[in-house]
Write a protein that binds this DNA or RNA. Structure first.
Lengths: 202, 202
DNA sequence: GGGAGCATGTAACGGGTTACATGATTGG
DNA sequence: CCAATCATGTAACCCGTTACATGCTCCC
């Protein structure tokens, strides 16, 4: 039953993600990595906590997928920069190629709450969906701005494509929220009629 | 800094989700709950492991949000059915109303891999996106079938609305995959031209 | 002077998973 | 008779988070 243990299981996805951040060639500190994660990965994957980035870097170093050195100047502040190794690059490549394509993880709290709509007042439900709509719109805006300023640099072609993908994703999310609001209106109207019928027949 | 501990923090979202499953009124066993989760929650939230459902039920019982009894007939097989209490129903209502609206959790492995497209062959990238497209299509089909057979029963209006929402969600996901495939084609063409230019200028 | 940002971690905890154990019933 | 399904749980483990500790530097 248990799938054979493969090389690509040796790291949790987050580990590969961090290694991926380093695969663009820069030498980066844990702190910088966190910031990069926060304004790229976050949009379509997720932003690990700072503490976990450090933990992940240690693991990566143990596997010789990254090397680190004390940043030369500015010696007093202890500052360690990490760089991907060829072994790390190879392993990452293999992971990208060979790891099974898994369905995205989606935990949609708003959908969950609408699903339980019979328990709350229609207005409260609307408000929840509206807040979500707002959020989707903000994300879309952010990503569209990011797309506009994206590097022309061929090294960033793929990230740029994913940013555009993200913008469309959140656009769809917003459209979905709008549609849901229309559905809610329809449900309220129907309930109104039902209630009216009950009253008439009483 | 730390947000004040609220009542709605007393359970992890999964706890509320399980309680939500019970809020439709049926008496259910842990096993049945798992199946319900697998063919409803799964589409927009996520399906907890069986073992966790039992753990969650225990917690819910400790909080008096559910009660349980040994199923009367069929005594030999130890079988315990759970039912939501009024306290549980109230708590769930409060959670639905008052818990902050949090952004959906999205961990999109496919996007992550495209983002690192510079490390793999274009064909391998296409294949990953195509597998994902396939998946999205299957989910859409499943949900559309579910929507078609959905209860007319007013008690299921909201679940039905969420099923339709899900169908549209995966439709969008498929469209997004298609668009991504077109982008990949464009990138390949551009890389071809770049390569050609390099050759000419050499 | 003090707050924001830079920088690195540790400790405790919790939520959730996999793997495992157990056994009865049903249907091909 | 054997496999699948029903049914319930425990134990080990790990991923990741929050909270905390520390201290520097830059700029208002």
């Amino acid at each position: 039953m248990a799938r054979a243990r493969h090389e690509f299981d040796e790291l949790a996805p987050t580990g590969w993600a961090v290694l991926g951040l380093l695969s663009f060639g820069n030498e980066l500190t844990g702190y910088e990595l966190k910031k990069w994660a926060d304004n790229s990965l976050r949009f379509f994957y997720w932003a690990p906590a700072t503490s976990q980035i450090y933990a992940e870097l240690k693991r990566l170093e143990r596997l010789s997928y990254v090397t680190s050195r004390e940043a030369a100047h500015d010696e007093l502040r202890n500052k360690r920069v990490y760089r991907i190794t060829t072994a790390g690059c190879d392993a990452l490549r293999r992971w990208l190629r060979d790891a099974p394509v898994e369905p995205p993880v989606l935990k949609h709290g708003v959908a969950l709450r609408v699903w339980l709509g019979h328990l709350v007042e229609p207005d409260e439900l609307r408000s929840i969906v509206e807040q979500h709509r707002q959020y989707a719109e903000e994300m879309q805006d952010e990503l569209e701005r990011a797309a506009a300023t994206a590097r022309r640099d061929p090294a960033w072609t793929y990230p740029a494509a994913v940013i555009r993908w993200g913008a469309r994703y959140y656009e769809a999310e917003r459209a979905l929220a709008d549609e849901m609001l229309r559905e809610l209106t329809a449900i309220e109207r129907a309930n109104g009629r039902r209630k009216a019928r009950r009253v008439r027949s009483a």
